[in-house]
Protein backbone atom coordinates (compact mmCIF):
# COMPACT_ATOMS: atom_id res chain seq x y z
CA UNK A 1 0.00 0.00 0.00
CA UNK A 2 2.72 2.44 0.96
CA UNK A 3 4.55 1.68 -2.26
CA UNK A 4 1.46 2.69 -4.25
CA UNK A 5 1.41 5.97 -2.41
CA UNK A 6 5.12 6.45 -2.95
CA UNK A 7 4.74 5.80 -6.65
CA UNK A 8 2.04 8.49 -6.85
CA UNK A 9 4.21 11.00 -5.01
CA UNK A 10 7.17 10.07 -7.17
CA UNK A 11 5.16 10.75 -10.32
CA UNK A 12 4.25 14.22 -9.05
CA UNK A 13 7.86 15.02 -8.23
CA UNK A 14 8.33 15.68 -11.94
CA UNK A 15 5.72 18.46 -11.71
CA UNK A 16 6.90 21.34 -13.84
CA UNK A 17 5.70 24.73 -12.65
CA UNK A 18 5.65 26.22 -16.13
CA UNK A 19 4.25 23.24 -18.02
CA UNK A 20 1.85 21.64 -15.54
CA UNK A 21 1.05 25.02 -14.03
CA UNK A 22 -0.27 26.36 -17.35
CA UNK A 23 -2.25 23.17 -17.98
CA UNK A 24 -3.97 23.56 -14.61
CA UNK A 25 -4.62 27.27 -15.28
CA UNK A 26 -6.22 26.39 -18.63
CA UNK A 27 -8.34 23.69 -16.96
CA UNK A 28 -9.49 26.04 -14.19
CA UNK A 29 -10.38 28.85 -16.63
CA UNK A 30 -12.24 26.42 -18.86
CA UNK A 31 -14.16 24.90 -15.94
CA UNK A 32 -15.09 28.32 -14.52
CA UNK A 33 -16.28 29.69 -17.87
CA UNK A 34 -18.34 26.55 -18.49
CA UNK A 35 -19.85 26.49 -14.99
CA UNK A 36 -21.05 30.10 -15.33
CA UNK A 37 -23.24 29.47 -18.34
CA UNK A 38 -23.84 25.81 -17.42
CA UNK A 39 -25.63 26.85 -14.22
CA UNK A 40 -28.32 28.56 -16.27
CA UNK A 41 -28.59 25.59 -18.65
CA UNK A 42 -29.16 23.25 -15.70
CA UNK A 43 -31.75 25.53 -14.12
CA UNK A 44 -33.62 25.92 -17.40
CA UNK A 45 -33.63 22.13 -17.74
CA UNK A 46 -31.78 22.61 -20.99
CA UNK A 47 -28.69 20.56 -20.23
CA UNK A 48 -29.14 18.73 -23.51
CA UNK A 49 -29.05 22.06 -25.33
CA UNK A 50 -25.49 22.47 -24.02
CA UNK A 51 -24.72 19.08 -25.51
CA UNK A 52 -26.36 20.01 -28.79
CA UNK A 53 -24.66 23.37 -29.16
CA UNK A 54 -21.20 22.14 -28.20
CA UNK A 55 -21.50 19.49 -30.92
CA UNK A 56 -23.04 21.78 -33.46
CA UNK A 57 -20.27 24.39 -33.29
CA UNK A 58 -18.02 21.88 -35.00
CA UNK A 59 -19.11 22.70 -38.58
CA UNK A 60 -18.70 26.41 -37.74
CA UNK A 61 -15.15 25.71 -36.61
CA UNK A 62 -14.38 23.51 -39.59
CA UNK A 63 -15.60 26.10 -42.07
CA UNK A 64 -13.44 28.69 -40.35
CA UNK A 65 -10.43 26.33 -40.50
CA UNK A 66 -10.99 25.75 -44.18
CA UNK A 67 -11.48 29.42 -44.95
CA UNK A 68 -8.67 30.96 -42.91
CA UNK A 69 -6.30 28.04 -42.58
CA UNK A 70 -5.58 28.93 -38.98
CA UNK A 71 -6.90 27.93 -35.58
CA UNK A 72 -6.77 31.25 -33.78
CA UNK A 73 -9.02 33.81 -35.27
CA UNK A 74 -12.04 35.92 -34.68
CA UNK A 75 -13.87 34.42 -37.69
CA UNK A 76 -13.60 31.05 -35.99
CA UNK A 77 -15.46 32.37 -32.95
CA UNK A 78 -18.04 34.07 -35.10
CA UNK A 79 -18.60 30.94 -37.17
CA UNK A 80 -19.10 28.92 -34.00
CA UNK A 81 -21.43 31.47 -32.47
CA UNK A 82 -23.55 31.48 -35.62
CA UNK A 83 -23.63 27.67 -35.67
CA UNK A 84 -24.65 27.64 -32.00
CA UNK A 85 -27.48 30.11 -32.42
CA UNK A 86 -28.64 28.31 -35.58
CA UNK A 87 -28.87 25.07 -33.57
CA UNK A 88 -31.09 26.75 -31.00
CA UNK A 89 -33.22 28.29 -33.76
CA UNK A 90 -33.50 25.10 -35.83
CA UNK A 91 -34.48 23.15 -32.73
CA UNK A 92 -37.24 25.61 -31.90
CA UNK A 93 -38.38 25.78 -35.48
CA UNK A 94 -38.61 22.00 -35.98
CA UNK A 95 -40.44 21.60 -32.70
CA UNK A 96 -42.87 24.36 -33.63
CA UNK A 97 -43.38 23.04 -37.15
CA UNK A 98 -44.72 19.61 -36.40
CA UNK A 99 -45.06 16.57 -34.24
CA UNK A 100 -41.45 16.46 -33.07
CA UNK A 101 -40.73 16.97 -29.38
CA UNK A 102 -37.83 19.07 -28.19
CA UNK A 103 -35.55 16.11 -27.46
CA UNK A 104 -36.05 14.60 -30.89
CA UNK A 105 -35.69 17.89 -32.77
CA UNK A 106 -32.49 18.62 -30.85
CA UNK A 107 -31.24 15.13 -31.67
CA UNK A 108 -31.94 15.66 -35.36
CA UNK A 109 -30.30 19.06 -35.53
CA UNK A 110 -27.13 18.50 -33.56
CA UNK A 111 -26.24 15.05 -34.87
CA UNK A 112 -26.68 16.30 -38.42
CA UNK A 113 -24.54 19.38 -37.78
CA UNK A 114 -21.95 17.34 -35.85
CA UNK A 115 -21.69 14.84 -38.68
CA UNK A 116 -21.25 17.66 -41.18
CA UNK A 117 -18.60 19.16 -38.93
CA UNK A 118 -16.79 15.84 -38.61
CA UNK A 119 -16.70 15.38 -42.38
CA UNK A 120 -15.36 18.90 -42.79
CA UNK A 121 -12.74 18.39 -40.09
CA UNK A 122 -11.49 15.20 -41.71
CA UNK A 123 -11.35 17.11 -44.99
CA UNK A 124 -9.61 20.05 -43.35
CA UNK A 125 -7.08 17.81 -41.62
CA UNK A 126 -5.34 17.31 -44.97
CA UNK A 127 -4.74 21.05 -45.28
CA UNK A 128 -4.65 22.37 -41.73
CA UNK A 129 -2.80 21.08 -38.71
CA UNK A 130 -5.86 19.66 -37.00
CA UNK A 131 -6.28 16.34 -35.29
CA UNK A 132 -9.77 14.82 -35.44
CA UNK A 133 -8.94 13.12 -32.12
CA UNK A 134 -8.86 16.59 -30.60
CA UNK A 135 -12.61 16.72 -31.22
CA UNK A 136 -13.05 13.88 -28.76
CA UNK A 137 -10.88 14.81 -25.82
CA UNK A 138 -9.08 18.05 -26.64
CA UNK A 139 -5.39 18.62 -26.22
CA UNK A 140 -4.99 20.41 -22.92
CA UNK A 141 -1.53 18.83 -22.49
CA UNK A 142 -0.31 20.88 -25.46
CA UNK A 143 -1.39 24.14 -23.78
CA UNK A 144 2.12 25.39 -22.84
CA UNK A 145 3.57 24.75 -26.31
CA UNK A 146 1.74 27.46 -28.25
CA UNK A 147 2.38 30.82 -26.58
CA UNK A 148 1.80 34.45 -27.35
CA UNK A 149 4.01 37.21 -25.97
CA UNK A 150 1.92 39.61 -23.86
CA UNK A 151 3.63 42.38 -21.89
CA UNK A 152 6.91 40.55 -21.72
CA UNK A 153 5.41 37.22 -20.67
CA UNK A 154 4.89 34.10 -22.76
CA UNK A 155 1.27 33.23 -22.17
CA UNK A 156 -0.30 30.17 -23.81
CA UNK A 157 -2.77 31.15 -26.50
CA UNK A 158 -5.37 28.75 -25.08
CA UNK A 159 -5.15 30.45 -21.69
CA UNK A 160 -5.75 33.83 -23.33
CA UNK A 161 -8.77 32.52 -25.25
CA UNK A 162 -10.30 30.84 -22.21
CA UNK A 163 -9.58 33.88 -20.07
CA UNK A 164 -11.29 36.17 -22.55
CA UNK A 165 -14.40 33.98 -22.70
CA UNK A 166 -14.48 33.73 -18.90
CA UNK A 167 -14.36 37.53 -18.63
CA UNK A 168 -17.09 37.81 -21.28
CA UNK A 169 -19.31 35.31 -19.46
CA UNK A 170 -18.70 37.02 -16.12
CA UNK A 171 -19.52 40.44 -17.57
CA UNK A 172 -22.76 39.21 -19.13
CA UNK A 173 -23.89 37.34 -16.02
CA UNK A 174 -23.04 40.23 -13.69
CA UNK A 175 -24.66 42.89 -15.89
CA UNK A 176 -27.72 40.81 -16.76
CA UNK A 177 -28.01 38.82 -13.55
CA UNK A 178 -31.61 39.68 -12.77
CA UNK A 179 -32.64 39.40 -16.43
CA UNK A 180 -31.12 35.91 -16.69
CA UNK A 181 -32.63 34.95 -13.34
CA UNK A 182 -36.21 35.95 -14.14
CA UNK A 183 -36.17 34.66 -17.72
CA UNK A 184 -34.87 31.31 -16.48
CA UNK A 185 -37.41 31.07 -13.66
CA UNK A 186 -40.52 32.49 -15.30
CA UNK A 187 -40.06 33.42 -18.97
CA UNK A 188 -43.71 34.42 -19.41
CA UNK A 189 -43.59 36.88 -16.54
CA UNK A 190 -40.23 38.21 -17.74
CA UNK A 191 -41.72 38.91 -21.15
CA UNK A 192 -44.75 40.70 -19.68
CA UNK A 193 -42.36 42.90 -17.67
CA UNK A 194 -40.55 43.93 -20.84
CA UNK A 195 -37.57 41.60 -20.35
CA UNK A 196 -37.65 39.64 -23.59
CA UNK A 197 -37.15 36.00 -22.53
CA UNK A 198 -36.47 34.90 -26.11
CA UNK A 199 -33.68 37.44 -26.44
CA UNK A 200 -32.13 36.21 -23.18
CA UNK A 201 -32.46 32.63 -24.45
CA UNK A 202 -30.45 33.41 -27.58
CA UNK A 203 -27.92 35.45 -25.62
CA UNK A 204 -27.32 32.45 -23.36
CA UNK A 205 -27.08 30.13 -26.38
CA UNK A 206 -24.49 32.45 -27.94
CA UNK A 207 -22.44 32.42 -24.73
CA UNK A 208 -22.68 28.62 -24.60
CA UNK A 209 -21.47 28.41 -28.21
CA UNK A 210 -18.52 30.77 -27.59
CA UNK A 211 -17.61 28.87 -24.43
CA UNK A 212 -17.78 25.58 -26.31
CA UNK A 213 -15.37 26.92 -28.94
CA UNK A 214 -12.94 28.26 -26.36
CA UNK A 215 -13.07 24.93 -24.52
CA UNK A 216 -12.74 22.95 -27.76
CA UNK A 217 -8.96 22.86 -27.83
CA UNK A 218 -8.65 22.16 -24.11
CA UNK A 219 -11.22 19.53 -23.29
CA UNK A 220 -12.62 18.73 -26.70
CA UNK A 221 -16.07 18.78 -28.14
CA UNK A 222 -17.55 15.98 -26.06
CA UNK A 223 -16.07 16.49 -22.60
CA UNK A 224 -17.03 20.16 -22.58
CA UNK A 225 -20.57 18.97 -21.90
CA UNK A 226 -19.38 17.51 -18.59
CA UNK A 227 -17.78 20.83 -17.69
CA UNK A 228 -20.98 22.73 -18.58
CA UNK A 229 -23.39 20.50 -16.70
CA UNK A 230 -21.84 18.42 -13.94
CA UNK A 231 -20.42 21.10 -11.59
CA UNK A 232 -23.64 23.13 -11.97
CA UNK A 233 -25.81 20.10 -11.20
CA UNK A 234 -23.64 19.35 -8.16
CA UNK A 235 -23.90 22.94 -6.92
CA UNK A 236 -27.69 22.86 -7.32
CA UNK A 237 -27.78 20.00 -4.81
CA UNK A 238 -25.76 21.99 -2.30
CA UNK A 239 -27.53 25.34 -2.08
CA UNK A 240 -30.89 27.12 -2.36
CA UNK A 241 -29.52 30.43 -3.56
CA UNK A 242 -28.78 31.19 -7.19
CA UNK A 243 -25.71 33.38 -6.62
CA UNK A 244 -24.19 30.79 -4.28
CA UNK A 245 -24.99 28.04 -6.75
CA UNK A 246 -23.14 29.80 -9.58
CA UNK A 247 -20.11 30.50 -7.36
CA UNK A 248 -20.07 26.92 -6.09
CA UNK A 249 -20.36 25.54 -9.61
CA UNK A 250 -17.31 27.55 -10.67
CA UNK A 251 -15.40 26.41 -7.59
CA UNK A 252 -16.35 22.75 -8.08
CA UNK A 253 -15.32 23.00 -11.73
CA UNK A 254 -11.96 24.50 -10.75
CA UNK A 255 -11.39 21.79 -8.14
CA UNK A 256 -12.22 19.13 -10.75
CA UNK A 257 -9.66 20.71 -13.08
CA UNK A 258 -6.88 20.67 -10.48
CA UNK A 259 -7.74 17.17 -9.29
CA UNK A 260 -8.05 16.14 -12.92
CA UNK A 261 -4.52 17.07 -13.88
CA UNK A 262 -2.99 15.77 -10.65
CA UNK A 263 -5.04 12.61 -10.99
CA UNK A 264 -4.05 12.15 -14.63
CA UNK A 265 -0.41 12.04 -13.52
CA UNK A 266 -0.66 10.30 -10.16
CA UNK A 267 -3.45 7.73 -10.53
CA UNK A 268 -1.98 5.72 -13.44
CA UNK A 269 1.43 5.95 -11.71
CA UNK A 270 -0.03 4.16 -8.70
CA UNK A 271 -0.43 1.11 -10.91
CA UNK A 272 2.83 1.63 -12.74
CA UNK A 273 1.43 3.25 -15.88
CA UNK A 274 2.25 6.42 -17.77
CA UNK A 275 0.14 9.53 -17.12
CA UNK A 276 -3.27 9.63 -18.82
CA UNK A 277 -5.50 12.20 -20.54
CA UNK A 278 -6.11 15.26 -18.33
CA UNK A 279 -9.41 16.33 -19.88
CA UNK A 280 -10.88 12.89 -19.37
CA UNK A 281 -9.72 12.89 -15.76
CA UNK A 282 -11.23 16.38 -15.21
CA UNK A 283 -14.61 15.16 -16.38
CA UNK A 284 -14.26 12.02 -14.29
CA UNK A 285 -13.38 14.05 -11.19
CA UNK A 286 -16.40 16.33 -11.65
CA UNK A 287 -18.51 13.17 -11.89
CA UNK A 288 -16.90 11.86 -8.72
CA UNK A 289 -17.69 15.11 -6.86
CA UNK A 290 -21.28 14.81 -8.07
CA UNK A 291 -21.50 11.22 -6.84
CA UNK A 292 -20.12 12.24 -3.43
CA UNK A 293 -22.70 15.03 -3.22
CA UNK A 294 -25.54 12.72 -4.14
CA UNK A 295 -24.56 10.39 -1.29
CA UNK A 296 -23.22 12.75 1.39
CA UNK A 297 -24.92 16.07 0.47
CA UNK A 298 -26.20 17.96 3.53
CA UNK A 299 -29.85 18.23 2.57
CA UNK A 300 -30.59 16.44 -0.66
CA UNK A 301 -28.02 13.67 -0.11
CA UNK A 302 -29.10 10.05 0.19
CA UNK A 303 -27.62 9.62 3.68
CA UNK A 304 -29.19 12.74 5.17
CA UNK A 305 -32.54 11.83 3.65
CA UNK A 306 -32.25 8.36 5.09
CA UNK A 307 -31.42 9.85 8.48
CA UNK A 308 -34.35 12.27 8.24
CA UNK A 309 -36.68 9.37 7.52
CA UNK A 310 -35.45 7.33 10.46
CA UNK A 311 -35.55 10.11 13.03
Amino acid sequence: MSSVFERMLESLRNWNGALDGWIVVAGVLCAAACALVGSFLVLRRMSMMGDAISHAVLPGLAVAFLMTGSRASLPMFMGAAIAGVLTAMFTEWIRGAGKVDEGASMGVVFTALFALGLLLVVQAADHVDLDPGCVLYGAIELTPLDTVRVGGYDIPRVVLTLGTVLVLNLTCVLLLYKELKISSFDPALATTLGINARLMHYLLMTLVALTAVAAFESVGNILVVAMLIVPAATAHLLTDRLSVMIGLAMLLGAVSAVLGHVGAIALPAAFGYESTNTAGMMALMSGLLFALTIVFGPRHGLLSRLRARNS
Binding site: I182, S184, L193, T239, D240, R241, M245
Partner: peptide, 14 residues
Amino acid sequence: FPVSALDVVTMGRY
Protein backbone atom coordinates in the same frame (compact mmCIF):
# COMPACT_ATOMS: atom_id res chain seq x y z
CA PHE B 1 -35.37 26.87 -8.65
CA PRO B 2 -32.84 28.19 -6.12
CA VAL B 3 -34.70 31.34 -5.08
CA SER B 4 -36.49 32.44 -1.90
CA ALA B 5 -40.07 33.72 -1.63
CA LEU B 6 -38.64 37.24 -1.28
CA ASP B 7 -36.59 36.79 -4.48
CA VAL B 8 -39.68 35.73 -6.40
CA VAL B 9 -41.72 38.69 -5.15
CA THR B 10 -38.87 41.10 -5.98
CA MET B 11 -39.05 39.85 -9.59
CA GLY B 12 -42.36 41.70 -9.93
CA ARG B 13 -40.28 44.86 -9.66
CA TYR B 14 -37.70 43.98 -12.34
